Amino acid sequence: MSTIRIGTRRSALATTQAGQIADRLRALGHDVELVEIVTEGDTNRAPLAQMGGTGVFATAIREALLAGRIDLTVHSLKDLPTAPAPGLTIAAIPPREDPRDVLVARDGLTLGELPEGAKVGTGSPRREAQLAALGLGLDIRPIRGNVDTRVGYVRDGALDAVVLAKAGLSRLGRTAEITEAIDPVQMLPAPGQGALALEIRSDDAALYDVVAAFDDADTRAAVTAERAVLAALEAGCSAPLGALAEVSEELDGSLEISLRAFVGRTDGTFDLRRSVTGPVDRAAQLGDELAALLLEDGARDAFESPNGDPPDPAPGGVLPATATVTPIHPTSAAEREQ
C-alpha cells in the first residue's frame, strides 16, 4: 500500500489524535503522512451554536477525503453530523477515552467550592445548560479556542474556571491540570465524547481492511446509542443535549447498554433527564426509544428560547470557510495550535 495520508485539523489536540493513529499504522509497517486541513470551525470565531454547530470541524476534511487529497481522517466523533456522508465510511471507532467533562479551576477548586458569581467559561450550550441546572449561581461566560487558550483564561485570572472534555486533556498529557472530574449525574457528556471516528472513502477496500482492526465493538455500540438520541431529536452537536451509554456484562454473559440523556435550556429553566436499558445489539433502537421518551415528556421545549429572542450577533468579523490542504511534518504537528 502507498503512503497513507491522514487529514487533520491543525490544533494540538487534533494532530495528537491523528498522530496516535499514525503511530499504530506505522507499527503495522505502513508509511504515513499527516496533512493539515483548515475547517470553518478554525477560521470562524463565532460561537458554535451561531454557526449551526454540526459539521463545522468536519466538512472541509470530508471534502478533501472525497477529492482524494487524503486517504483517512481522524475525527472527534462528537463533532460529526449524525447523517451518513455519501461516499464515506467510518471504518473504525477505537476504544474510547474517559467521556466525562472536567473542571480546571483556580486554586484547585471543585464545582461545589466555587463561590456564587464565579466566572466559568465554556463554549458548549450543553455544559451551560447543565451548569445552570445545578443552581450554583455561576456566571457562565462563552469562550472559544484551543486547550491552551481556554486554560489560559484561568491562569491569567480572567475566569475562575473552565469546563473541558477529559479525553482531550488525557490525550495531550495534561490531566494534572484537572481540579475535578464531573460526575455524569451532574453533567452528561456530548454524544460520542471521548471517542474517535476513523473515516475513509467507501470504495477503499484495502485501507478498510487495515483500519477496521482498530474498531472496538463496545465503544461503537455505546456511541451508536448516544448518537441515535441526537439524530432522533434532530438536534445539532451544539444543542443543549447530553447522552451517555455504558456497556456492561450481565450474569448470563450477555451485554447490556444503559443509556441516559439530558436536554435543557441554557438559562436553567428546563432540565429533563431520562434513561433506558436494553441488549447491546439494539443500540440504535434504544437511542430512538429514549428520544421518544424525552419528546413525550417535553424535550422539544428545550430547543426553544423561553422568550423568543434571537441569539446575539457574533463578535468581530467572520472569515469564509476554506479547504486549504498543506502537508506538515509528522513530528512537529502536535506542537501546532489552531
Rank of each mutant, 00 (worst) to 15 (best):
V185D: 15
R144N: 04
L188V: 11
V120N: 03
L295G: 00
F270A: 01
R336L: 04
V38W: 01
R96Y: 08
D79G: 07
R127H: 02
D203E: 13
D216I: 07
L169A: 06
S275E: 15
T322S: 13
L290N: 01
I93L: 02
D148F: 13
T324M: 07
A12T: 14
T277M: 15
A283I: 15
V147C: 10
L272S: 08
A133H: 11
E289S: 12
D203I: 06
H329I: 04
L230N: 08
I257P: 06
E335T: 03
A118V: 13
S258Q: 02
R24M: 04
P47E: 01
E128W: 10
L290F: 02
T277F: 12
P94I: 10
R260N: 03
P94D: 14
T149P: 00
S275R: 14
S124V: 11
Q338I: 03
V154S: 03
T269E: 09
A83L: 11
L251Q: 01
A228I: 05
A299S: 05
A176R: 15
R220D: 02
L111T: 06
Q50R: 05
D309E: 05
A261M: 14
S305D: 14
A60S: 13
E113Q: 10
A161R: 10
P86Y: 02
G108L: 13
P81Y: 13
T179Y: 14
S305T: 02
Y153N: 02
T269K: 08
E36R: 00
T179K: 12
G264C: 11
L196K: 02
L88I: 08
D312R: 15
P81H: 10
Y208K: 03
A92E: 04
L111V: 01
P306V: 08
V318P: 00
V325C: 01
T39M: 02
V325S: 01
K78I: 03
A261T: 00
E226L: 00
I257V: 04
R127A: 05
P330G: 03
D271I: 09
K166M: 13
R126Q: 11
D218F: 00
L80W: 05
L34A: 03
E177D: 15
L136I: 05
D216M: 04
G145I: 06
A165V: 09
P240N: 14
R100L: 03
G168E: 15
A14Q: 05
R127Y: 08
L233D: 01
A206E: 15
A27H: 05
R227P: 07
G145H: 05
P81V: 10
E97A: 12
A239N: 04
R106M: 03
A181P: 08
D204Y: 05
S202N: 12
I37H: 06
T54H: 09
Q20P: 06
A92D: 07
